[in-house]
Design a protein around this nucleic acid. Sequence first.
DNA 1: CATGAATGAGTATTCATTCAT
DNA 2: GATGAATGAATACTCATTCAT
Lengths: 192, 192, 192, 192
Amino acid sequence: MDHISDKKKAIFESMLALVKENGFHGTPMSMVARKAGVAAGTIYHYFESKEQLISELSCLVRKQMTAAIENGADESLPFQDRFFRIWMNLYRFYENNPDALWFFEQFVNSPYNTEKEKEGHDEFHDLIFRFFRKGVDEGFFRKVNPEILGILAHGNIITTAKMQRYGKIAIGEAELQQIAQMLWMGLADHHT
Amino acid sequence: MDHISDKKKAIFESMLALVKENGFHGTPMSMVARKAGVAAGTIYHYFESKEQLISELSCLVRKQMTAAIENGADESLPFQDRFFRIWMNLYRFYENNPDALWFFEQFVNSPYNTEKEKEGHDEFHDLIFRFFRKGVDEGFFRKVNPEILGILAHGNIITTAKMQRYGKIAIGEAELQQIAQMLWMGLADHHT
Amino acid sequence: MDHISDKKKAIFESMLALVKENGFHGTPMSMVARKAGVAAGTIYHYFESKEQLISELSCLVRKQMTAAIENGADESLPFQDRFFRIWMNLYRFYENNPDALWFFEQFVNSPYNTEKEKEGHDEFHDLIFRFFRKGVDEGFFRKVNPEILGILAHGNIITTAKMQRYGKIAIGEAELQQIAQMLWMGLADHHT
Amino acid sequence: MDHISDKKKAIFESMLALVKENGFHGTPMSMVARKAGVAAGTIYHYFESKEQLISELSCLVRKQMTAAIENGADESLPFQDRFFRIWMNLYRFYENNPDALWFFEQFVNSPYNTEKEKEGHDEFHDLIFRFFRKGVDEGFFRKVNPEILGILAHGNIITTAKMQRYGKIAIGEAELQQIAQMLWMGLADHHT
DNA sequence: CATGAATGAGTATTCATTCAT
DNA sequence: GATGAATGAATACTCATTCAT
């Protein structure tokens, strides 16, 4: 059923929001509990430790990111359309879920992102990788390790989302189109 | 002038190295002191608080980043050459100073990076901005807000450095050239 | 009558075994419940509190100790035979019920052994006392407060059982005989 | 110098007294700190953890016990005199240091008394052992493993001290003499 | 009777910071 | 300037106990 109890969901959401405000360290479990409307001890029925709560939350966020992309994975579309669709889908996800973006950025560079964490299966990464390999194989992209292309593309989207979030620079629809376009042009194989 | 006492330098280096290992929270002042070979109290002769030590360190790192770029700012060179030179210079800096890269990435996404922090004058940012504005003005780059271009370019370099640092994907000289090349192609104005 | 429900028994046994492993403090009620195969709340149908569970368990153990002795209380036997029989019966009880020995030793020296606890009627103590008073009255033992003799004798048995349990010193049948013999010789009235 | 700082001593004494009242678990570090007149954190300058504080305290107590015996180790005295002297010295120690007696009894039967703890070198035990081996070798005691004799004798003293401490039974000088005498008679080799 | 999710007070421990020497 | 012992507020986590189902 994959059913997540209401309390567990409330705890997830509470942590997500608070981490954005205060960072991992600045977010005591007691605060997570209060915002989630549960007792401090209750969290420990659902999660073994703060570390595990954060770890599970990172999995959840990654799943959401994966889901966000998959909408654009419609294989019947032309490749280039899929590229822009994926770019925009993921961008929109970050735009609409700034807490998730912030959480993830902090998580990646934190001691919570342990070796064990990194070694787990990462469907998000796989999805991206397959897409870019296909792009290389079919001549759309340069002959470069598709993994590199995927990571650069994702970095590009995150940079854009952070820019928008940061708020000092106006990023409208036109700019988004241009940024995605620039990425496509950069990756494209201009030989042919 | 601008002389940094040996102890102060030792404290900076100690913090820089430890933050990479353990993160901000995992790095108590006592540990910084021990690694720097000074007493805990001594740190407070040089810095008002942990926060300020981190803040000053972030300034120092930014200065180093600025210095790294400036080598490529030789205005007599053709613009495109300067672009690749700046790209590579900054990349090399991150490659050779992984502690600094790590520290900065953590810092940017941390509560230590306060509003006040963000509002301070940022010579690094200015330098980048001026360069990209020139590129736009002179027709090398698309007609896009140069600030956006600068941030995308910096994001590209950091993504590359982290990829290399992360170690799972082989990034050799050939790949570096390609990545910079792709960035250039992306930003370039293909109209003309 | 005096019927103990299966669950209650399971809870007693669970606590007894766990206390030996982990001590009172290291034995949370939830652990007792799990090992007993009941829900945490169920324990509170049978016992008012952890304290009372422990208190009742201590009574139960004392009863078992009393029963162990009583087998040797056959008044038709010569007094000396009864002495050795009691000694060995009690020793065997501790040997065969190391959990009980351990529990009792911890209990006696714990804050659970409250004043109220100590003041309750103690049949075990009475039994021992009567036996040693008889021994004194009939000239087998020295003219010493029989309560003292009883406590010394019991201490001797417990010391022996712990030695055996501890495992570093080989205690065989021969040694047991000797220890009991030494105790007898010590208590005996050598005047006559 | 074996010098123990005043604060460390205060912490030891505070713990010793409180454990007697409340047991290990009932004695939070904050309470130890308050009674010792130091801040909670201060304890952790001297001891790594509660466990280590307790462990070190147990060593200290054992040393005191050893010292108490050694006064009676005057080898020029007749063996029997030494026996009674050791018995009384150790008894007096327990009588005058009821906190230590209580602490030790609790400690021995607690999870703090780890395997590692038990395996450490134990001078107290060695001293006792050597004395009883000599007694056996020189024909004063029965031909029984001297280790067993030592443990029984120590158990006898502790039982006596606890009886006295317990307070319900009057133990005067006469009784003490008798108890020690009974122990001697018990251990003695009556063959010769 | 039985359950087990929920509670929240209580505990060991950490760590930025101070200050007497 | 330099030291490091001392501080005490803050935090993750535990567990006896309750109660709605």
